[in-house]
């Protein structure tokens, strides 16, 4: 039931063509094709644009401010430039820090809160509704809101720190040492509820009988959590972790509204670097090359795991 469900090859799929319905198989074929048509009408031309425009852009030194630069063929020139670009390396490092620290803490806090929420808590329905708000809040609004809260003169955070005697004039977002941690904190603030909501739904859909058996055997507290709950929750945790990583790697709006990548390049994530190169210095040939390098690297890192997890999910849901 488990592994075979995914790996079973297409035998069953081939069967209908040898069934009595064979004589209308040609009409059938077009009817089936037409089901993919609406999606293909949008997706295929856009993919063609990515490929055709992409190849043109990465091989030319096009800069929107320099007329004629679009015809300047430079072959691999954009790539050699990228591989010796300290800002690219820097933005990869910033993005990695952002994803590892942000998503890591979201998972720890989120799973913890979901475990606490799974049971009798007064006001549970209201809690579930309220924690949705950070999650669906427009990231631009979240970024600006936290910029207001972290403001060195009128920010509420500085007021609170002043009240407890830790100084009330921290310029969190203009200090290279604290700017990235501050943005990561907002990422955690915004997306921990996502982990809570999905893990909680996962916990509630678990089969109760292993828990009853384990409790009869005397398991409780952390033993129960470590040996029964977390292993049963494994597939849900993997999917949540993956979705958070995919989303966090793309982060753009928070950084753009809070620091625009500064001070210097201390908070410049990949998306912000590509945007800055393409639409602030208008170096769009090079910008496309950066996007391509980063995307290929990301796909090599994430895609195999993601595919396996999709398989996992399929198997789980048939169980």
């Amino acid at each position: 039931m488990t592994a075979t469900a995914v790996r079973a090859p297409a035998r069953r799929a081939e069967k209908p063509s040898s069934s009595p319905r064979r004589r209308i198989s040609k009409r059938n074929f077009f009817a089936r094709l037409s089901l993919a048509l609406p999606a293909a009408v949008v997706v295929v031309p856009l993919l063609a644009i990515i490929v055709v425009q992409g190849i043109d852009l990465v091989t030319h030194a096009e800069n929107l401010t320099r007329p004629g630069s679009a015809d300047k063929f430079i072959g691999w020139g954009n790539f050699t430039r990228a591989f010796s670009d300290p800002d690219l390396l820097g933005s990869i490092r910033v993005t990695l820090t952002y994803v590892v620290a942000g998503v890591g803490l979201e998972m720890i806090i989120g799973v913890g809160i979901a475990l606490l929420l799974n049971g009798r808590i007064p006001g549970k329905g209201v809690i579930r509704a309220v924690i949705l708000i950070p999650m669906v809040l427009t990231p631009v609004v979240a970024g600006l809101m936290w910029r207001l809260l972290l403001d060195p003169t009128s920010g509420f955070v500085n007021y609170l720190l002043g009240v407890v005697g830790l100084g009330n004039d921290h310029a969190f977002l203009s200090d290279p040492a604290t700017a990235l941690p501050a943005i990561i904190m907002v990422e955690i603030w915004q997306n921990t509820p996502f982990v809570v909501i999905i893990v909680l739904a996962g916990l509630e859909s678990l089969d109760p009988s292993p828990f009853e058996a384990a409790e009869l055997d005397g398991a409780r507290g952390f033993g129960l959590l470590k040996n029964v709950t977390l292993p049963m929750l494994g597939p849900v945790l993997a999917v949540v972790l993956l979705l958070r990583i995919i989303d966090a790697v793309k982060t753009f709006a928070l950084v753009n509204t809070m620091t625009q990548g500064g001070p210097g390049t201390s908070t410049l994530t990949i998306s912000n670097y590509v945007y800055r190169t393409g639409f602030q210095t208008f170096d769009i040939g090079y910008s496309t090359t950066l996007g391509l390098i980063v995307s290929v690297a990301l796909l090599i890192l994430i895609f195999p795991t993601a595919g396996r997890l999709m398989g996992l999910r399929i198997r789980r849901s048939r169980g």
Binding site: I49, V52, G54, K250, V294, S295, L298, L299, F303
Partner: peptide, 10 residues
């Protein structure tokens, strides 16, 4: 999974 920065300029 592909980040939007790949297709932004094209």
């Amino acid at each position: 999974i592909v980040p939007p920065v790949l297709s932004l300029t094209p």
